[in-house]
Amino acid sequence: MANNTGKKYGGREAGTPNKLTKELRVALKNIMFQEIELIPEHLKTLEPKDRLELTIKLMPYVYPKISSVSPSTNEPMTFGWDD
């Protein structure tokens, strides 16, 4: 018979982590760490063009992207050397 009461019975309690998800994340994290350690060796085997393309693709994970800055209305413009 189906539960038509709207109450939850059985299963995990709210906030209890899923064991399979946790194990999968640990396994994937271990794989990623192993691959990261091999990047310098992989780069040596690539052609210069391919090495440059891969380096450019990896840069956003190392260096933050620069965002443009524009002054807001009614704000005075100050520069670092205006002390």
Rank of each mutant, 00 (worst) to 15 (best):
A2V: 01
A2G: 04
N3M: 06
N3W: 04
N4L: 12
N4E: 07
N4R: 12
T5A: 05
T5G: 04
K7W: 07
K7V: 09
K8M: 07
K8A: 13
Y9L: 10
G10Q: 05
G11R: 00
G11T: 02
R12A: 10
R12F: 00
E13K: 08
E13S: 04
E13M: 04
A14S: 08
G15Q: 01
T16H: 03
T16K: 07
T16Q: 11
T16V: 15
L20G: 10
L20I: 15
T21Y: 12
T21F: 08
E23F: 02
L24N: 08
R25F: 11
R25N: 15
V26Y: 03
A27Q: 13
A27G: 03
L28Q: 15
L28P: 03
L28A: 09
K29Y: 08
K29R: 14
K29P: 03
N30E: 14
I31L: 11
M32W: 07
M32T: 08
M32S: 13
F33N: 14
F33R: 12
F33C: 09
Q34F: 06
Q34K: 15
E35W: 06
E35H: 11
L38A: 14
L38K: 15
I39R: 08
I39L: 12
P40D: 05
H42S: 07
L43A: 00
K44N: 10
T45W: 00
L46D: 02
L46K: 05
L46Y: 06
L46V: 01
E47Q: 12
E47I: 03
E47D: 13
P48K: 12
K49L: 06
K49I: 08
D50F: 06
D50Y: 10
D50C: 07
R51G: 00
R51W: 01
E53S: 10
E53R: 14
T55P: 00
T55C: 07
I56Q: 14
I56S: 12
K57E: 07
M59F: 10
M59E: 10
P60T: 01
Y61P: 01
V62D: 00
V62M: 11
Y63S: 12
Y63W: 08
S67Y: 14
S68W: 08
V69G: 02
V69K: 13
S70N: 12
S70R: 09
S70G: 02
P71D: 05
S72G: 15
S72V: 05
T73Q: 09
N74S: 14
E75T: 10
E75F: 14
P76H: 11
P76K: 15
T78P: 00
W81Q: 08
D82A: 09
D82K: 09
D82Q: 13
D83N: 13
D83R: 09
D83I: 11
